[in-house]
């Protein structure tokens, strides 16, 4: 009797906790499908990455297809090198694709915008370990203002 009631209440407790976990995992958190499952990596060099961070999203037209997995300085000239991990679902990006550091909204976080290139018999597809050569750096506010003032002065 006593132990039956105990079993029942503990069972309910466990079920509530499981529901809470499910709620948190599926409703509140993104289950980051892009970093689980099959992925491949591509690289891109920038002049300036702004405030891009590891785990920032990689988006195609606003849809997340992957994440930034590492940022380092590379080569003689210390160019920022960004490693992206892209879901293998999206493996048909051509070598002519371009990538740029974008900002979501005026004060939002920075992310990588991937612009698929044209597809032609003469160009291949990006594979694991490939580099994207066509990159656009982050807009730096100070430089923009500087340029604006400079062009004003020229007139």
């Amino acid at each position: 009797m006593e132990s039956r009631k105990t079993q029942l209440t503990v069972g309910i407790f466990v079920i509530i906790a499981a529901l809470a976990l499910a709620f948190l995992a599926f409703k509140a958190a993104s289950n980051s499908a892009t970093t689980s499952g099959e992925t491949y990596r591509i690289y891109a060099k920038f002049d300036n990455i702004g405030s891009l961070k590891v785990r920032s999203p990689v988006k195609v037209g606003g849809v997340v297809v992957g994440r930034v997995t590492s940022i380092s300085l590379d080569g003689e000239y210390y160019e920022p090198l960004v490693e992206m991990t892209i879901s293998s679902q999206f493996d048909e990006f051509s070598e002519t694709s371009s990538v740029s550091v974008l900002t979501s909204g005026l004060l939002g976080e920075q992310y990588l915008g991937l612009q698929p290139g044209f597809i032609d018999d003469s160009v291949g597809m990006l594979k694991d370990g490939d580099y994207i050569t066509d990159t656009k750096s982050a807009l730096v506010l100070e430089q923009l203002i500087g340029q604006f003032l400079f062009s004003q002065g020229n007139e």
Binding site: A25, K27, A28, A29, S30, N31, V64
Partner: peptide, 15 residues
Amino acid sequence: FWSVMQSSVDWYDDL
């Protein structure tokens, strides 16, 4: 409310 939450809460990092 939910979608912004989902995009910034990470399964591994946070939960």
